[in-house]
Each structure stands twice: as structure tokens, then as C-alpha cells.
């Protein structure tokens, strides 16, 4: 049983690390500011969620686990607020988004 939980927590940790790096790559590759927010939100949801889940499985039912849950709730509630504030401030200051052309071909940056 302990082995099983250990294996699951390692899988979560590795997957979370992978999504954190993917978010970083997206932050560099995406063509404009608004699309970069989408890349960063991969880190903040999947990356942070899986990493915290992996740590939670390592911790077991203790006060540490409760702190990890509080950390997860903080990210869960606050990160969309920050992303929305960023986007709406950029829109208010007149930063024009890069939009794809209307026809049905995938756009290239």
C-alpha cells in the first residue's frame, strides 16, 4: 500500500514538473501577450495542482496536509483573479490582441 501511494505521488510530481516546464516554454513561444496568459495558466492549474497533490500524498493525514490544501485553495481562487486583472488592465490601456484571420486555416505567428 505504501509503495502504491509512493508511486502515485511520484507520478504526480513528475507530471506537475512537466506541466510547469511546458508553461515556461509556452510563455516564450506564444506570439502575443494574451496568448501567453493561456500558457501561464497551464502552470498555475495543472502544474501547481499536480505538484501539490503529489506532496499531499507524501504527507499523509497531518497538519502539513491541511497546509498544502490551503496552498492549493489559494492558487485555485487567486490565480484566475490575477489573470483577469492582467488581461483587463492590458485591454484598458489599449494593448491590441493579435487575432487569427477569419478563414479556417491555423494561424502562424
Amino acid at each position: 500500500m505504501t509503495m502504491l501511494i509512493d508511486a502515485a505521488s511520484w507520478a504526480c510530481l513528475v507530471a506537475g514538473s512537466f506541466f510547469c516546464v511546458v508553461g515556461g516554454i509556452g510563455l516564450l513561444r506564444m506570439p502575443d501577450f494574451y496568448t501567453r496568459i493561456h500558457a501561464a495558466s497551464v502552470t498555475e492549474t495543472l502544474g501547481a495542482g499536480l505538484l501539490l497533490l503529489g506532496l499531499l500524498l507524501q504527507a499523509g493525514p497531518t497538519l502539513i496536509a491541511a497546509k498544502l490544501v490551503a496552498l492549493g485553495l489559494l492558487v485555485f481562487f487567486a490565480s484566475p483573479t490575477a489573470a483577469h486583472a492582467l488581461a483587463s488592465a492590458a485591454m484598458t490601456r489599449g494593448l491590441a490582441p493579435l487575432l487569427a484571420p477569419r478563414e479556417d486555416t491555423p494561424s502562424k505567428p
Partner: peptide
């Protein structure tokens, strides 16, 4: 979204 980020053609249409 992660598949689109890692795709070399970057198939996004914002």
C-alpha cells in the same frame, strides 16, 4: 493547450 504549446507548428488561432 500543452499539446498546442509543444507542437512545432504552434496551431493557435486566437
Amino acid at each position: 493547450v500543452s499539446r498546442r504549446i509543444l507542437d512545432p507548428r504552434l496551431p493557435v488561432s486566437p
